[in-house]
Amino acid sequence: MTVTEFPPLLSEEDLQKYKVPLKWRDRCAAYYALYKICLVRQSANSSIVCKQDKHSWEECENLDFKRRQQELSELKKTMKEESSA
């Protein structure tokens, strides 16, 4: 599965319910929560594999990082144009 869009944002109640740490409360928190749920299930049943959930979460984080880089470069470009005008 390739992540091309961000999942809907989790509510504050869901973030607390799934015990998502503050540093991972971003656009990819839903994937993180799915991965953590899978890990809990895996600890109870060793036949469950969470590789795909982890990959989806990491792919989403990478996509979000690229989005933030793009926004920063656009902001820098705008600020440079405003200062030279």
Results as ranks from 00 to 15, higher is better:
44 A>P: 05
32 Y>A: 04
41 R>P: 04
47 S>H: 06
75 L>W: 14
16 Q>L: 12
10 L>H: 01
10 L>S: 01
11 S>L: 09
12 E>M: 09
15 L>V: 08
8 P>F: 03
26 D>H: 07
85 A>G: 11
71 E>P: 03
68 R>C: 11
72 L>P: 00
34 L>E: 05
77 K>M: 10
2 T>N: 08
7 P>Y: 01
58 E>P: 02
63 L>Q: 01
56 S>H: 06
15 L>A: 07
4 T>N: 04
50 C>E: 00
60 C>P: 01
9 L>S: 06
57 W>E: 00
20 V>F: 02
4 T>E: 05
70 Q>W: 14
3 V>D: 02
4 T>L: 03
10 L>V: 05
48 I>A: 04
15 L>I: 13
80 K>C: 05
29 A>W: 01
79 M>P: 01
16 Q>T: 09
55 H>R: 15
55 H>N: 12
57 W>Y: 08
2 T>P: 02
10 L>C: 06
75 L>E: 15
83 S>P: 02
49 V>N: 08
58 E>T: 09
17 K>M: 07
14 D>L: 13
80 K>L: 05
57 W>N: 00
84 S>D: 11
73 S>M: 10
44 A>M: 09
52 Q>G: 13
79 M>S: 15
42 Q>K: 07
69 Q>K: 15
42 Q>A: 07
15 L>Q: 05
43 S>Q: 14
54 K>A: 06
23 K>S: 08
11 S>Y: 09
20 V>N: 01
2 T>V: 07
74 E>Q: 13
2 T>G: 04
32 Y>N: 03
47 S>N: 11
69 Q>E: 15
60 C>Q: 03
19 K>H: 15
82 E>V: 12
81 E>S: 08
62 N>I: 03
49 V>L: 11
48 I>G: 03
69 Q>Y: 10
6 F>C: 05
52 Q>W: 06
27 R>V: 02
11 S>V: 07
27 R>S: 06
81 E>Y: 07
65 F>G: 10
68 R>G: 07
60 C>M: 01
19 K>D: 11
81 E>Q: 11
75 L>H: 13
80 K>S: 13
80 K>W: 12
84 S>K: 13
12 E>T: 08
3 V>N: 01
31 Y>G: 00
22 L>V: 12
51 K>V: 14
18 Y>R: 02
18 Y>V: 01
42 Q>L: 04
64 D>A: 15
54 K>C: 10
42 Q>C: 07
6 F>S: 01
35 Y>E: 00
83 S>R: 10
40 V>L: 12
55 H>C: 14
4 T>H: 03
33 A>Y: 03
1 M>Q: 13
68 R>W: 14
53 D>W: 00
77 K>E: 13
28 C>P: 00
26 D>C: 10
20 V>Q: 02
12 E>Y: 04
37 I>P: 01
68 R>A: 09
56 S>N: 09
54 K>S: 08
72 L>K: 14
66 K>R: 13
46 S>K: 12
8 P>A: 09
27 R>E: 11
21 P>I: 04
18 Y>I: 04
5 E>S: 15
73 S>N: 11
5 E>R: 10
18 Y>P: 02
34 L>S: 11
65 F>S: 14
35 Y>L: 03
58 E>Y: 02
38 C>F: 02
2 T>L: 05
50 C>Y: 00
59 E>M: 05
30 A>L: 09
47 S>C: 09
30 A>K: 02
36 K>V: 14
70 Q>L: 12
2 T>S: 09
61 E>T: 07
6 F>Q: 04
10 L>A: 03
62 N>M: 08
75 L>T: 14
